[in-house]
Simulated assay, not measured.
Amino acid sequence: MLSIVIPCYNEEETISLFYKEVEKVRQQMNEIFEYIFVNDGSSDETLTILRKLAKEDPTQVRYISFSRNFGKEAGLYAGLKAAKGELITVMDVDLQDPPDLLPLMMKKIQKSDVDCVGTRRVNREGEPPIRSFFAKMFYKLINKIGDTEMVDGARDFRLMTRQMVDAVLELTEYNRFSKGIFSWVGFKTEYLEYENRERVAGTTSWSFWNLFNYSIDGIINFSDTPLNIASFVGAFSCVASGIALIFIIVRALLFGDPTSGWPSLISVVLFVGGLQLLCLGIIGKYIGKIFLETKKRPVYIVKETETTNPS
């Protein structure tokens, strides 16, 4: 059986379209599918549509509905935990992940020694240029400062063996970054390339600011380089201040102590103060992540499933 994990957040326009397209592929493959839709606290009619779909196809369709919006990472984690298949894939409901790749992915994972068949976009046509630029910069940066390699353009859309999914589920951390986790577990992965596809309906819930914060989380979760940078900046400022102090003392002994220089002094104070705040901000980010982990709060809370549907 192939389990398909589909996180949903305000996707009332795309769920039916997604189900129909994947069903076409399933009939061609003649395989048993398990749909696991995860409603991430949607405020539209997403849950109503999932209830209806589960009634129409009770043998294949399951859904999990959160008590509020916990984020896509929580949706992925919940879906993977609920999946029962020997093969599991993760897909976006907006059809930016092409369902017609599933037969080839299935063939590759069954006839080779790979544990995961992933997908990656060869271009970002249709995306705002600034988003594409920062996405490329993120992958270049994380691969230089982190120990876990992340493939540029790689999607969450991947077909994984049960062994790999079980390994992913062993990582129970609260602060999750799935792209990094999928790479960190270390199973053999091959990638299929495809042209970028736009959403079939609706609008994305990922703003530029959301993606920026998500990338910061990825860097913090998989690299301690920002802490090293903060230490280096602090040490450099200390040494530079010491040299400047010696220079000022020597100049005062040789040429006297002029009263001029207040603007430059204030500039230096503000500069050093800014560096200190920057370093404290970096350290604070890591401390905040530690704080959330030590609380041991659940990654998500389930309010309803197809078996607890009040109707």
Score class of each variant (00 low, 15 high):
K136P: 08
E23D: 12
S207I: 07
F187C: 13
I49R: 01
F271G: 11
T89S: 15
F18W: 04
T89N: 12
Q96V: 15
N10Q: 02
E125D: 08
L253W: 08
N30M: 06
Y139A: 12
F255E: 11
E173F: 07
R124Q: 04
R51Q: 07
F187I: 04
L95A: 06
G256M: 01
V272Q: 15
F18I: 00
F37H: 00
K179C: 13
I6P: 00
C279E: 01
I290M: 13
N213W: 12
T307H: 10
F177C: 10
P128N: 10
I282C: 00
E173H: 08
N69K: 00
G234K: 11
A83C: 08
N39M: 01
P99V: 02
D57P: 01
E198W: 09
N309S: 12
S112F: 03
F66P: 04
V165N: 06
L53M: 11
G153Y: 04
L141P: 14
T307S: 12
I88Y: 06
A54T: 00
I36H: 08
F271Y: 14
E56W: 04
Y214F: 15
A252N: 13
G79T: 02
S112I: 06
L101T: 03
F187Y: 09
L275P: 09
L192M: 12
A82F: 05
W184F: 14
N30E: 15
V90R: 07
I243D: 05
S207T: 11
P58S: 06
D217F: 15
Y191Q: 12
M137W: 14
S264I: 13
R131W: 07
Q96T: 12
D40N: 00
R121F: 00
S67P: 12
K24N: 02
R297C: 05
I243G: 05
R251D: 13
P98G: 11
M29K: 03
K136T: 09
I181S: 06
I243A: 05
F182R: 03
F208L: 15
K289V: 08
R176I: 04
L265Q: 14
V168C: 15
T225G: 05
I36L: 03
K81E: 15
A235Y: 08
W206Y: 13
V269K: 11
D224S: 14
M105Y: 03
T308Y: 00
D166L: 06
F232A: 14
L53D: 14
M29A: 06
F247W: 14
I243P: 02
L50D: 05
E11C: 01
K303F: 01
R199G: 10
E193S: 06
G281S: 07
P263L: 09
I142G: 09
S260Q: 11
D57E: 12
I220V: 15
T308P: 03
V151P: 10
R155S: 14
E304L: 02
R62I: 02
P98L: 02
T14N: 02
A244L: 03
Y191G: 08
K108H: 09
L53W: 05
L171A: 14
K140R: 13
E73R: 09
Q27E: 12
A252V: 07
V61C: 05
L53N: 04
S42E: 00
P298Y: 00
I229L: 15
E13G: 05
E73C: 07
A240C: 14
D257L: 15
C238A: 15
D94I: 04
A252E: 10
W206C: 15
C279N: 04
V122S: 10
K81D: 14
E190L: 07
Y214G: 10
F182H: 14
S132C: 15
